[in-house]
Amino acid sequence: MKKTLILFFLLVGFHAVQAQENELTWHTNFEKAMQLSLKEKKPLMLFFTGSDWCGWCIRLQKEVFHKSEFAAWAKDKVILVELDFPRKKQLEPSMQQQNYGLQNALQVRGYPTIWFVTAEKKDDGKINLSQLGSTGYVAGGPEAWLTGANQILANFKKG
C-alpha cells in the first residue's frame, strides 16, 4: 500500500512539473512585454486574435500554441504577446486602445496574424517597431509552424 501511494504521488508530481514546464506566459500589456524583450534580448511575438469568435485562431492555438514543442521553442526564442479582439467580452478601454494601435501600426487586416518584431523606446517616449516578419495559421502542426517562424527569426540579431 505504501509503495502504491508513493508511486501515485511521484506520478502526480511529475505531471504537475511537466504541466508547469509547458505553461507559457502570454503578456497582454505591450509596455511590460517590451521591457522584458529588451532585458532578455528576445523579439516579441505579437498574436493578433479574435479569441472568442475566430475559428482559425482557435485552431492555431489547439494545433500549435498548446503543444509542448511550441512551449519549449517559445521559452527560448520569444516574448509572447496576445492582442485580442473579442466580440463576446469587453476589454478595458486602455487594452482596446493598445491593441487597436498596434493593429493599425502593423496594418493587420485579418486573424490570426502573428508579427515578430523588435521594439525600441526612443528618448521622446515613442516606440519604434522593427518588423522581422509575419505569419498566420499554417497547416501541419507545430513542426510546420515552427519551421516558418524560425525562418523569420533567422535574421534576428541579439543586441
Rank of each mutant, 00 (worst) to 15 (best):
M1R: 11
L5C: 08
L5A: 12
L11K: 01
V12E: 00
V12H: 02
G13C: 10
Q18Y: 13
A19I: 06
E21T: 14
N22F: 12
L24Q: 04
T25D: 08
T25K: 15
W26Y: 08
H27Q: 02
M34A: 15
K41T: 12
K41Q: 15
P43A: 02
L44N: 05
F48M: 00
L60C: 06
K62C: 07
K67Y: 03
E69W: 09
F70W: 06
A71Y: 03
A71D: 10
W73M: 01
W73T: 09
K75C: 06
D76N: 11
K77L: 11
I79H: 01
I79R: 04
L80T: 03
V81A: 04
F85W: 09
R87K: 14
K88D: 09
K88I: 07
E92A: 14
P93F: 07
P93D: 11
Q97L: 15
N99R: 09
N99I: 12
R109I: 14
G110W: 12
P112H: 02
T113I: 06
I114S: 00
F116E: 05
E120T: 15
D124I: 10
D124W: 03
G125W: 10
S130D: 10
S130C: 05
Q131S: 13
Q131E: 14
S134G: 08
Y137H: 02
V138F: 05
V138L: 03
G140S: 07
P142F: 00
A144W: 06
L146R: 01
Q151W: 06
I152G: 04
A154T: 07
N155R: 12
K157E: 14
K157W: 07
K158T: 14
G159L: 14
G159K: 13
